[in-house]
Design a protein around this nucleic acid. Structure first.
Lengths: 100, 100
DNA sequence: AGAACATATCGATAAAATTCGATATGTTTT
DNA sequence: AAAACATATCGAATTTTATCGATATGTTCT
């Protein structure tokens, strides 16, 4: 868990929003027609639609967040779903509270 | 209290270190010969020496942190001391814990 | 008032981040 | 096997950040 890396990942408006949206997917995204649940998070397509930036940008953003261990990708067929990595997030908020 | 602004301010290694050093100035800095206490924090000179970057860079960094309300400057004669803004920091860590 | 010093601001350059469209890779469907 | 689709990666253009030295501003001391 690298505080600086996470801070960098969350120092961008869109990425900060994404991680917050993923906390309550049912609130911010349409249901998945194919899966019917959000257990593995939300697929890139849906995030892309909500964010309004290009597909390659979203993919890049998600990879930045993944490198910071903030999200976990799961492939279902041709779709990749991203969910939060709650372990990292919990130790991050803990650390922030302690060292900051 | 602007989370994004604070994240940006703390997405730099040096600035993240500074805010942490200012939490325990006696631990990280020499005593102030002139003041004899750290009630208003640490002067730019001392921070500069510890960081090892140029005076203008440190000044700039401190201004970024000040704009994010993370630090409070106090002038004592020709020196400017910077201390943490504990109110902002507390509500930031609270918010982070709640919204993240 | 002027010299000396601390800090802030300015202007410039180099490095990193943002963002895109094009292309590559992997999966499903016909 | 080819078409269609989702996502990832690449290469490039633009914007932002990092960082410096020079200069300006404000304070103190002589």
């Amino acid at each position: 868990m690298d505080i600086l890396k996470i801070n960098k990942a969350l120092s961008n408006k869109t990425r900060l929003e994404i991680i917050q949206w993923l906390k309550e997917p049912e609130k911010y995204f349409d249901p998945h027609l194919d899966l019917g649940h959000f257990r593995d998070g939300v697929c890139v397509q849906h995030i892309r639609k909500k964010v309004g930036l290009s597909q390659s940008t979203i993919s890049h953003y998600l990879s930045i967040m993944q490198k910071a261990n903030l999200v976990i990708p799961t492939r279902h067929g041709k779709w990749t779903y991203y969910k939060r990595n709650e372990e990292t997030i919990a130790s991050y908020t803990d650390q922030i509270r302690n060292v900051l």
